[in-house]
Write a protein that binds this DNA or RNA. Structure first.
Length: 193
DNA sequence: CAATAGATCATCT
DNA sequence: GATGATCTATTGC
């Protein structure tokens, strides 16, 4: 399984968001298939943190592709994004859900409340908790290192579903959420409790 | 089953 | 000082 290189991320954000579906997110012992993503664009996308320009916090979104942007939301959950677009152009992809592959015991330890394996990583805040990803990883290079995205040696044929993004008020009708159709590990699914 | 309240803090106004 | 790319438990049908 090969780690995905920088050129993969050096593309329009929407392409990266779609392309990440079916890839493997790895952190230490833990790994999972990316089954749901959302694209957050630049200055025109008022739902995106980058829409208000470069600040201390949004600096990494404007930086080189293939890096992690991790931030705290609602005072208690961390969300993982992967930076897309060339250096200097804003754009990132929120990783919203994973299908757990390895390190499931460790994930269960970190999320004792989860009843089913499929709910360990079925949301942006859940997956960072389960995988042990925190703001300490903000800005790290995901093309080399401990936190990485890999290409599965053999990827199943998938059907991609497109919907509006979740949990936002601005640009709430833009079709920028991508998920693997029918996957039970997707966020806000009935079965995943 | 669906709807909602509460937790809790970094960031920006 | 308000707000938010969320999650969980609890309440109410």
């Amino acid at each position: 399984m090969r780690t995905i290189g920088r050129t993969f991320y050096d593309r329009p954000t929407v392409e990266v968001a779609r392309g990440l579906l079916g890839k493997i997110l790895v952190h230490g012992e833990c790994s999972g298939i990316i089954v749901e993503t959302e694209a957050y664009l630049g200055l025109n996308d008022s739902a995106a943190h980058a829409s208000r320009g470069i600040t201390e916090r949004t600096r990494v979104i404007f930086g080189p592709p293939g890096h992690a942007y991790v931030y705290l939301i609602y005072g208690m959950h961390e969300c993982l994004n992967l930076v897309a677009e060339p250096d200097g152009v804003p754009g990132c992809v929120l990783i919203r859900a994973l299908e757990p592959l390895s390190g499931i015991g460790e994930m269960r330890n970190r999320r004792p409340g989860a009843r089913l394996d499929q709910s360990l990583c079925s949301g942006p805040g859940k997956l960072t908790r389960a995988m042990g990803i925190t703001r300490a990883q903000n800005g790290v290079d995901v093309t080399r290192g401990d936190l990485a995205v890999r290409d599965p040696s053999r990827m199943a044929c998938i059907e991609i579903e497109v919907t509006p993004r979740i949990g936002i008020r601005q640009c709430a009708d833009w079709p920028l959420r991508f998920l693997i159709k029918g996957n039970p590990c997707v966020s806000r699914s009935r079965v995943a409790r």
